[in-house]
Amino acid sequence: MAETKKINPVLKMALELGPIILFFAGFSRMKDQTFHIAGNEYSGFIVMTGVFIALIIATTGLLWALTGKLSRMQLMTLILVVVMGGLSVWLNDERFIKMKPTLLYLAFGGILGAGLLQGKSYLSSVMEEALPMQPEGWMILTRRLTAFFFALAVANEAVWRLMSTEAWVNFKTFGLTAALFGFFMAQSRLFERYGIKDDRPGT
């Protein structure tokens, strides 16, 4: 079994968020440009999608090299970016990469929902060490997060179908990140009520 290594949390965050930030910065500069590549015309969005795919592959590879493992979420994100982003570049159609968050959140919601139907919290199996909590708390959090993921999938569909590409990029970069942060901040009372405190002396 491969040994799991720890890395600096700041470095880990930089590797995870770096591709998104660079995609946003690149799109902001290239959104009104058209590029002629191999006899075809590509928008700045499509070109940056290709760059984004390369960045995700590189940073995910670095995370694996530095930690010795990848989470299911990281693997699923990598696969969807490569597949949906690749289709966008290959077919010169931006709709595919825009659907990636929808598929990702539907997958997360579906996996958590399948566990709930079996009376289990799959969330606890991946977060319990970092966030000790009573089983009842995990079930409540899992139900809420399942519904939240489905809501995010619906929101992403509405934004990319009804708004401009620039609006979607802003939503993807800032809106979804803020929504996830806000969701977990809103669970503070749940964590306080069901959290398992460390009762060891001196803590």
Rank of each mutant, 00 (worst) to 15 (best):
E192W: 07
G195L: 01
N170H: 14
A179G: 07
P132D: 15
M185N: 14
K120H: 00
S88P: 12
S88E: 11
T146E: 13
S125W: 12
L145C: 07
G195F: 01
G137K: 02
I111Q: 02
V83I: 03
F150C: 09
N170C: 13
M76K: 00
G86T: 11
T77V: 05
F174V: 06
M185W: 14
G113Y: 12
M185R: 14
V82Q: 02
F96W: 14
M139C: 08
F148M: 10
T146Y: 13
E166S: 04
V126N: 03
E128W: 07
F174N: 06
Q74M: 05
M76I: 05
V82D: 01
K197P: 03
E192T: 05
Y105I: 09
V154N: 08
W138T: 02
S188I: 12
L103R: 08
V169W: 10
I196S: 11
A179N: 09
F174M: 06
G182T: 14
A158N: 07
K100P: 02
K100V: 04
A178L: 11
T173E: 11
G109C: 13
S125L: 11
T173Y: 09
P132A: 15
F148K: 08
A107Q: 07
R95V: 12
L87T: 10
M185I: 15
E157P: 04
K172Y: 12
A178K: 01
K98V: 03
M99E: 14
T146S: 14
Q134W: 07
T77H: 08
R95P: 09
A147V: 15
A114Y: 12
V159N: 01
A155W: 10
V82H: 01
L75D: 09
S124I: 00
K172L: 07
L162A: 14
R193T: 13
E157D: 08
W168N: 00
G137S: 08
W168D: 00
G182L: 15
L162M: 15
L78S: 04
T177G: 12
Y122S: 06
L80Q: 03
I140D: 10
L180F: 15
L117W: 12
S125P: 04
R189H: 15
G85Q: 00
L91S: 14
G175T: 04
M76S: 07
L116H: 05
E157N: 10
G110S: 04
K120V: 00
E157K: 02
Q134C: 05
M133N: 02
E192Q: 06
V154E: 05
S125V: 04
E129A: 15
M127A: 07
L152N: 01
E94G: 13
T102D: 13
A158K: 06
L141E: 01
W138S: 01
M133W: 02
Q74F: 03
V89R: 04
L162Q: 15
Y122H: 09
V83E: 00
I196E: 09
E136Q: 14
L116E: 08
V82P: 00
M127I: 06
P101R: 02
P201K: 07
L145G: 04
Q118R: 03
G109P: 13
A178S: 02
M76E: 04
L112F: 14
P101Q: 04
P101H: 06
